[in-house]
Amino acid sequence: MNPKKEIDEGITFDTFMEGVWRQNPVFVMVLGMCPTLAVTVSAVNAVSMGIATLFVLVSSCLLVSLIRNLVPKEVRIATYIVIIATFVTLVDYIIQAVSLSLYEALGAFIQLIVVNCIILGRAEAHASKNPPLKAVVNALGMGIGFTIGLLALGATREILGAGKLFGFSLFGEHFQPWVVMVLPPGGFFVLGAWLLLFSFMRSRSATE
């Protein structure tokens, strides 16, 4: 599969789980905070954003990995940016074709996937040094980890901010929405609470 001798321990379970858990982009690396805080007012928005990012991440990592031995190092960043921008444009068209209201809810943050540091980071740090299959598995893990992070925030904010989850009412019509949760400060509060929970769990497992 790889003609040159690369550092390749093959694809392990950890290749996938790295992004989902150990190096979770939202909770551990705290990367891509712009969409994380901005679009997570509802679970649907969060999952759509996560899937859009996942798609861009996996496709660009695949392409970057395929051409990794062709690209001269001087122009590699420029090449990666062109590739990422292409897939972001694709996602932009696809979301418009699927649902315009979703497109309006996500706003400029679809186009801003292009500057999401997770994607360029993965392309540079992983995909450019690993064979396509491994790169894809790793990118898939990262994308799923990002989606899980967004979903955690989006679900919390939708439950408290609107009394709903995925649009289904949970508490009946007399629910009092916590308006702050759908406003920007709510994003910071909820992200802070999740980060607190994660570091608490990690420090606990470290002491045991």
Binding site: P72, A78, T79, V82, I83, T89, L90, I94
Partner: peptide, 19 residues
């Protein structure tokens, strides 16, 4: 460099037009 960039750009162009 020029050939690589040109190649990548044309692949991307085809993808975008197709989409």
């Amino acid at each position: 460099m020029i050939i690589t960039m040109g190649l990548v750009a044309s692949i991307c162009g085809v993808l975008i037009v197709g989409a």
